[in-house]
Design a protein around this nucleic acid. Sequence first.
DNA 1: CTGTATCCACTAGGATACTG
DNA 2: CAGTATCCTAGTGGATACAG
Lengths: 126, 126
Amino acid sequence: MGTKQFSGLPEDADLARADSLAREIFADVANKWAFLIIEFLGERTLRFSELRDEVEGISHKMLTQNLRMLERNGLVERDVHPTVPPRVEYTLTEAGQALRATVDGMCGWTRQYLGHIESSRDRFDA
Amino acid sequence: MGTKQFSGLPEDADLARADSLAREIFADVANKWAFLIIEFLGERTLRFSELRDEVEGISHKMLTQNLRMLERNGLVERDVHPTVPPRVEYTLTEAGQALRATVDGMCGWTRQYLGHIESSRDRFDA
DNA sequence: CTGTATCCACTAGGATACTG
DNA sequence: CAGTATCCTAGTGGATACAG
């Protein structure tokens, strides 16, 4: 798409910007905690503490950090109910739901190739 | 799948093992370098040095490290041609190709939501 | 060319304590 | 309950040098 002009300066610049942005997003989102969070939020809206229980092994700090990152990138919506004690709910946005399809795909892939991977590891480690 | 028996000890143990293995695989593969490598290898077989050129910004060390990891998990096949100088080619296995579909999905997702994400970031950072 | 090893700076991330 | 801040350690990852 976008046939390049003869000198093409503005378009090249735009492409470079988009590329580096895409890189950044990739680096942000392609990590195990983000994937797990997205996976759980895909099923339903969850509170902070519920998420911490579901995503086994995640620390308080990592959870807030990843949630902020996902919120910043517009994948997660944060709803604060000003009650006492406070109640904060996290929901996937449309963009988040769309990405969830990808994450689901990877979960399915893992299940499908579990055996293959396990035997490959055994072979390699020998 | 797999209806649980009354005491169900072996099956529970198996499920737990499979789960923790899946976690491990997730942690291995869900990282930006692995994804980028898989993406490039999806198009064609590449040599070590070609990969280093394609995957911009990756260090020598990270590249070997990730390639070993992918080989160990059976996603990438490593072919050594005993010439001088040596020539080593990396190819996606069937499992690797299958995962590539997922990675592709994520690339597409990034392109599709680039605008949404960028504006969300701007809003958040303000 | 491909790969390993060593060194070193840096940051990721856990534990803890404290606020609203 | 949710979130921030501080400290501190273990591991990540870059640069470099060297070997096959």
